[in-house]
Amino acid sequence: MKETSLYLWHHRGGRVGVLLLLAMVFVAVFAPLIAPYEPNAQISGSELQGMSLTHWFGTDFLGRDILSRTIYGARVSLFAGALAVILGAALGIFMGITAGYMGGWVDSTMMRLSDAISAFPAILLGAAIVAVLGPGFVQVAIAIAIAQSPLFARLARALAISEARLEYIEAAESMGASKASIILRHILPNAAGPLAVQASLSVGIAILLEAGLSFLGLGVQPPTPSWGQMLADSLRFIDFIPAYAIFPGLALTVVLVGVNLLADAMRDRVDPQHQNLGGGE
């Protein structure tokens, strides 16, 4: 763990990614201390104002401070991204490792289910699931988790198959270890590295999906601020208040750049082929 942390810090891209993400996490956690206004406070008569010393990023169509809403929006994006990946990884890893280790009809069933989920574009599948569950933060996280689960399932299955052939697994089996014990105590820890890389890659996708679903009005509900919803609201006013769209978009970009740089660095750490090419210092 310490070695990995050191590697990421000494990796040029990894360090930038970590710093960007830490900055965003800091903003999200300390939003009440940083934001100049309460994010839902409507200041009557101050609607659609441009950038000023009072409102650095201007105000939206209800007179709410765009800077404060952008700051609070980080909470939704980061938390939704993390929650969706945790749920998606749990579901996908369970499916994949069980399928890979058990084989037979369990493998076929799990993988066909995974294929069926993969057959739909993630945003479409997410929208369909939200249509069934109803809009909301948790519903969106569940929808994204389901849409992302095949990524983890395929990877986990491949890792489980390769691990299952190794002698230490045979040894564990011959000593009478249960299947659950072998999966949890032997296969899963040894597959953790590549799965962690996949998780870091998926966070970016999940954040983007959350923003997309919120843009379509299927994400968190008003007045809770989210970047996707702010971008959707800004469409009609972009001629008047460009900052309305620019800053939530910029915040989303920063998080995605951070997540992707970190994911690249983690991939370099796990994959020896990339290690020589990946910019490690």
């Binding site: 839902n40 406070a41 409507q42 209800l62 249509a131 809009p135 509900q221 008003p222 007045p223």
Partner: peptide, 25 residues
């Protein structure tokens, strides 16, 4: 509909009524 709801929500909060918005399709 939602704009009206959000404006009302902010004002009702000031008199002790918590209005939660259900935005349906």
């Amino acid at each position: 509909y939602t704009t009206i709801s959000e404006i009302l929500q902010a004002d009702l909060a000031k008199i002790g009524i918590n209005l939660s918005i259900e935005n349906a399709d």
